[in-house]
Computed example of a mutant assay.
Amino acid sequence: MSKTKILLTGGGGMVGCNILEHPSISEFEILAPRSRELDLRDFSAVLSYLSKHQPNMVIHAAGKVGGIQANMREPVGFLMENLDMGRNIVSAAHKVGIKRLINLGSSCMYPRNYSEPLREEMVLKGELEPTNEGYALAKVVTARFCDYIMREDASYQYKTLIPCNLYGRHDKFDPVHSHLLPAIIHKVHLAKQNGQQTVEIWGDGTARREFMYVGDLADAVVRAIHNFETLPPYMNIGLGHDFTINEYYQVTAEVMGYTGSFVHDISKPVGMARKLVSVDRQQAWGWNAQSDLRTGIEKTYEFYLKEYLQ
Rank of each mutant, 00 (worst) to 15 (best):
P163F: 01
F78E: 13
K95M: 06
L161Y: 00
R73F: 15
E152H: 08
H177G: 13
G97S: 05
L161W: 00
I19T: 13
H60C: 11
R294P: 07
V222E: 12
A61S: 15
G11M: 02
D242I: 04
L101C: 01
A218E: 09
N113T: 12
M14R: 07
I25N: 14
S2G: 12
F243L: 09
E302W: 06
E29P: 07
T198G: 05
Y114I: 13
H60R: 06
N132T: 09
N103W: 02
S24V: 14
L217I: 15
G286Y: 05
V123A: 09
E200A: 04
E29D: 13
I297K: 03
H241M: 12
I297D: 05
E37H: 11
S2C: 11
K3L: 10
H241R: 11
V46L: 05
V222I: 15
K172T: 07
H94E: 09
F228K: 12
N132C: 13
N246G: 14
I237D: 02
D242H: 02
E127I: 15
I30Y: 12
I102N: 09
N18M: 07
Y248E: 05
R119T: 15
C108H: 08
G205I: 08
H189D: 13
I185Q: 05
R87W: 03
D174N: 11
V221L: 12
T142C: 10
T252F: 14
N82F: 13
T160A: 00
I98M: 02
K268V: 01
S51W: 09
V176A: 15
D280I: 05
Y249P: 10
R73V: 15
S261A: 15
V263T: 06
N132I: 08
G105P: 09
M150S: 09
A62V: 04
A224W: 03
I225H: 11
G86H: 02
I184G: 01
E229W: 06
P182S: 08
I68Q: 14
G203I: 06
R223L: 11
Q69P: 07
S26Y: 08
D292Y: 07
S107R: 08
N56T: 07
I237L: 08
R223Q: 13
S155A: 02
L79C: 02
Q69L: 14
G126S: 10
N56S: 14
C146W: 00
E120T: 02
E247S: 12
I237R: 03
Y308F: 09
V176Q: 15
H226K: 15
K306S: 03
L40I: 00
Y114S: 10
K159Q: 01
P55Y: 12
A62C: 10
W285S: 00
R274L: 03
E302A: 11
V279A: 00
V255H: 06
T300R: 02
L161G: 00
I185K: 04
D265V: 00
S267D: 05
K5R: 15
V277W: 01
D204Q: 09
E210T: 07
K52T: 14
Y213Q: 13
F43E: 06
E129W: 13
L118H: 04
L190S: 04
Y156D: 07
Q282W: 01
D280T: 04
